[in-house]
Each structure stands twice: as C-alpha cells, then as structure tokens.
C-alpha cells in the first residue's frame, strides 16, 4: 500500500442532488464513522483533492462546473459517483435539463448506488476508489 492509499483527500460536489446523499456523505465524516481513521480528509478545494465525490444527476447549469473542478484536481485522481442519480441519472434521467449521470461529463471510476447511499456503502465506495487511486499512481510512476 503506497501513501496514496493512506491519505486520500476528498472533494465533495453536489451536481443537482436532492441533498439526501450529501447528508450521508457528511454523516460519514461525523465521529461515529470517523473517516479520518483512514487518513481521509474532506477538503473544500480541488487543488488538494485526490478523490472527487459527486452526487446528483448533473444539470445544464453545473456540468461546466463539474468539468472545471475535475480539471483542477491534480493527477492521480479518482471520481466516485455517489447515489443513483450520480450513477445513472436516477428518476431524473429523462428530465429535459438533466445530463443523466456524472459519467456523461467526466470519466467515473467507482459507482455507489443507493437512494440515498448508506454511510457503509459510501465508505466501501471510497475504499474501492483508493484501490483505483493506487493503480493510477502506479501507472503514472511507470510513465515517468
């Protein structure tokens, strides 16, 4: 396990979610679940982040924002789509203003379905993302 896996910092973005999943994400940061045990920190800033946690089905207003935030995160980075809306658009999939999932805008590495997701599922998703993060870092090192 490299340091990438031991210190994954999150950036959380709500791309037109109903806030259900967001509350679960924040709940996972509470003392009960204490994600800092795994070195996870909720940063508010793409420059510091490794894992991009996105909720919601992405609409016209925020798809640019989503893309910009993604661009501003330095490599290696992993995107986790949290909740069914982020994964596929959910019940809003066919709305006129909804893109239908995060992967319509940026590449997604881990999908965590649920409406809303449970903290355990979320943590599981992030742990998966950490695995992907390590792979990406190994690939980056190899390319150097």
């Amino acid at each position: 396990m490299t340091s990438a896996a031991k210190s994954p910092w999150l950036l959380h973005y709500n791309a037109s979610s109903c806030n259900g999943c967001d509350i679960e994400i924040l709940a996972a940061l509470t003392p009960l679940y204490d994600v800092e045990r795994f070195g996870i920190i909720n940063t508010g800033n793409p420059a510091h982040a490794d894992i991009f946690v996105v909720t919601g089905g992405v609409n016209e207003q925020n798809k640019e924002v989503l893309k910009n935030l993604y661009d501003q995160i330095p490599e290696p980075k992993v995107v986790v789509a949290v909740g069914i809306c982020a994964s596929s658009g959910g019940v809003f999939r066919d709305c006129y203003n909804v893109s239908g999932g995060v992967d319509t805008i940026i590449p997604v590495d881990v999908y965590v379905p649920g409406c809303s997701v449970r903290p355990e599922a979320l943590i599981e998703g992030v742990v998966k993302a950490i695995g992907v993060l390590e792979e990406k870092r190994a690939k980056m090192e190899a390319e150097k």
């Binding site: 973005y13 800033n45 793409p46 420059a47 640019e64 924002v65 989503l66 910009n68 935030l69 661009d71 501003q72 330095p74």
Partner: peptide, 13 residues
C-alpha cells in the same frame, strides 16, 4: 507542470 485556472468554485474562467 500544468497551469490551471484560478479556483472560483468551479465556475468557468
């Protein structure tokens, strides 16, 4: 290194 746009909450710059 890669130059990124200044951080303005993800708004396009």
């Amino acid at each position: 290194g890669r130059i990124v746009k200044p951080y303005l909450n993800g708004r396009a710059v």
